[in-house]
C-alpha cells in the first residue's frame, strides 16, 4: 500500500469529500505528524500507536572511505510504538 493507493481507497469509502480534499487531508495529516516530531513533540493516536523521538548519544565514527575519525554529534531519531489494537489486529490472522 502506497500513499496514492491509500488516497484512492479513502476516496472510495468517503462520499462527502472530493478527491482533492482527501488528497490534501492525507498530506496534511502526515505533515502535521512530521512537524510535531520536528518540534520535539510526541504523536499519540489511540488504537494505532505513538511516535516519539529517541536520543542517540554523540559518538566518534569513521569515514568509511578514508578511515578518518569524525565526531558525530548527539542526534534524534523517530520511534514508533504500535498501540494495543494495531498489535492484536496484525497478529490475529497470523499462524505459522
Amino acid at each position: 500500500m502506497t500513499k496514492s493507493k491509500l488516497i484512492e481507497e479513502l476516496v472510495l469509502k468517503q462520499s462527502s469529500l472530493s478527491h482533492k480534499d482527501i488528497d490534501l487531508s492525507v498530506k496534511t495529516i502526515l505533515e502535521l505528524m512530521v512537524e510535531a516530531l520536528e518540534n520535539g513533540e510526541r504523536v499519540e493516536i489511540r488504537g494505532f500507536g505513538s511516535f516519539s523521538l529517541h536520543e542517540r548519544a554523540a559518538r566518534q565514527g569513521r569515514n568509511p572511505k578514508t578511515g578518518d575519525l569524525v565526531d558525530l554529534p548527539k542526534k534524534y531519531v523517530p520511534h514508533f510504538k504500535p498501540g494495543k489494537e494495531l498489535r492484536s489486529r496484525v497478529n490475529k490472522n497470523f499462524t505459522n
Binding site: L6, K13, V26, I45, L86, V90
Partner: peptide, 14 residues
C-alpha cells in the same frame, strides 16, 4: 478523514 486514514493503514497491515 483522520479516523479513516489510520484505519486504512491498520487494514492494510492486518
Amino acid at each position: 478523514i483522520i479516523d479513516l486514514f489510520f484505519e486504512e493503514v491498520r487494514l492494510s497491515l492486518e
